[in-house]
C-alpha cells in the first residue's frame, strides 16, 4: 500500500504524450486509471511521472475498409459497447464489453487501456510474494499456491497468471490490429502478436517500446461477426472476472458443415486465447455436438492444470460445446 509522489503531465497532443513518456524512464501513460491507479496504490507499478492522455482526440469510432471499424484508443468501454456500428457488426464484442467490470468502470476504462490490463493474480498484486511478472527471477508463487483462477493454457514454468480482459477475447477472435505511435513512429501490431505469452519473460506482456502509445484498434470487416456472441460464466452473477468466457462467430453452410469459425476464450489463458486448434478441427466438418466436443478436446490437449484449477478444463470444454451447439440450433 503506497501512493508514491508523482509528477503529473496532461498531454495536449499525441506527440506531446509520447515525448513526455519516452523522455522519462519511470513514466507511464494514464488513461482511465482503473488498473494503473489501483496498482500504483498497491506498489505493484512504480511510475514517478504520469502522463494523462485522457484529453487526446482519440475517442472516435469510424468506418474503415468497407465495413471495418477503427476505435480510438481513448473511446470508453461503455460508449463502444453501445455504438450502433459495434452492436450491429460485432455483437459479441459489445456483449464482452458490457459483461466486463461495472458501468462506472466501463465509463472510465478506455479501449487502449484495456489492452494493457494487468492480471488479477493475487501474488502479483500483493507486491511482496515471489512473482516473475512483477520481479523477474523471483519465482512464481502461484504454481504451488492458491491457483483456482489461474490459467491452464499458454502457461510456463515462470508464470500461470490469467489474462483478465473480456473485450480482448473478442478482439483476438476478430483479428484486430493495434495501432500505436511511439518515439520511432507509427506501428501496427496484429493483436495476437500484441499479447505475449509469459514463456521465460512474464514481465514483458506486450511488444511496446517505452513511450509507445496505443492510438487505435482496427477491427476488420467480417460478415460472420454479425452473429457473434460472447458468453461469460462466473461464480457471481455480475461484477466479476470470468471463470470461463467464450466468444464465437460461426457460419454453417447448407450442408451443415462449419464454413467459418472464430472462437476465443477468456479466463483460461495467460493471454486472451484464440482457439486455433478448435477452429482448425471444425472448419469443413459437420457442426455436430460430437465434433464440437472433439474440437474442445483438441484445444485443451496441452492444458496444464493444478489440483485447484483442473476443473476449468472440463468446465471450459462444456462451455464451448454448449455455446457452439446453441449457436448452431
Amino acid at each position: 500500500m503506497t501512493m508514491r509522489p508523482i509528477t503529473f503531465f496532461r498531454a495536449g497532443s499525441i506527440d506531446e504524450a509520447v515525448a513526455a513518456v519516452s523522455s522519462h524512464p519511470d513514466s507511464a501513460f494514464l488513461a482511465g486509471g482503473t488498473t494503473e491507479i489501483d496498482l500504483l496504490r498497491l506498489n505493484v507499478v512504480q511510475p514517478t511521472l504520469l502522463v494523462d492522455v485522457n484529453d487526446l482526440p482519440l475517442t472516435y469510432l469510424e468506418d474503415v475498409d468497407d465495413g471495418g471499424v477503427r476505435i480510438g484508443a481513448m473511446a470508453r468501454m461503455s460508449d463502444v459497447a453501445r455504438a450502433p456500428r459495434i452492436v450491429e457488426r460485432y455483437p459479441g464484442m459489445s456483449q464482452a464489453l458490457l459483461l466486463g467490470a461495472s458501468e462506472q468502470l466501463r465509463n472510465m476504462a478506455s479501449m487502449g487501456g484495456n489492452m494493457c490490463q494487468r492480471t488479477r493474480c493475487s501474488y502479483f498484486r500483493d507486491g511482496q510474494s515471489p512473482c516473475n511478472k512483477r520481479e523477474p527471477g523471483s519465482g512464481c508463487s502461484a504454481l504451488t499456491g492458491i491457483n483456482r483462477g489461474h490459467a491452464v493454457l499458454g502457461t510456463s514454468e515462470q508464470c500461470i497468471a490469467t489474462h483478465p480482459s473480456d473485450v480482448a477475447v473478442a478482439l483476438v477472435a476478430l483479428d484486430a490490429m493495434i495501432r500505436t505511435i511511439g518515439p520511432d513512429g507509427t506501428n501496427a501490431i496484429p493483436i495476437e502478436r500484441f499479447f505475449l505469452r509469459p514463456a521465460d519473460t512474464p514481465s514483458i506482456e506486450h511488444p511496446l517500446a517505452h513511450g509507445e502509445l496505443i492510438v487505435a484498434i482496427d477491427v476488420p470487416a467480417l460478415p460472420v461477426a454479425r452473429t457473434s456472441r460472447y458468453v461469460k460464466h462466473r461464480d457471481r452473477a455480475s461484477y466479476e472476472f470470468a471463470l470461463v468466457s467464450v466468444f464465437s462467430a460461426m457460419r454453417v453452410d447448407d450442408a451443415g458443415n462449419v464454413a467459418e469459425l472464430r472462437l476465443a476464450l477468456g479466463g483460461v489463458g495467460t493471454v486472451p486465447w484464440r482457439a486455433h486448434r478448435a477452429e482448425e478441427a471444425l472448419i469443413g466438418r459437420p457442426a455436430t455436438p460430437e465434433n464440437f466436443a472433439a474440437a474442445a478436446d483438441a484445444e485443451f490437449a496441452d492444458a496444464r492444470t493444478t489440483p485447484m484449477n483442473e476443473f476449468m478444463v472440463t468446465f471450459a470444454k462444456r462451455a464451448i460445446v454448449r455455446e457452439l451447439s446453441e449457436v448452431t440450433s
Binding site: 508523482i6 503531465f9 496532461r10 506527440d15 515525448a19 523522455s23 502522463v51
Partner: peptide
C-alpha cells in the same frame, strides 16, 4: 521534453 512547462508536482 515538450512536457517541460506542463509538469506538475
Amino acid at each position: 521534453a515538450p512536457a517541460e512547462t506542463g509538469l506538475r508536482g
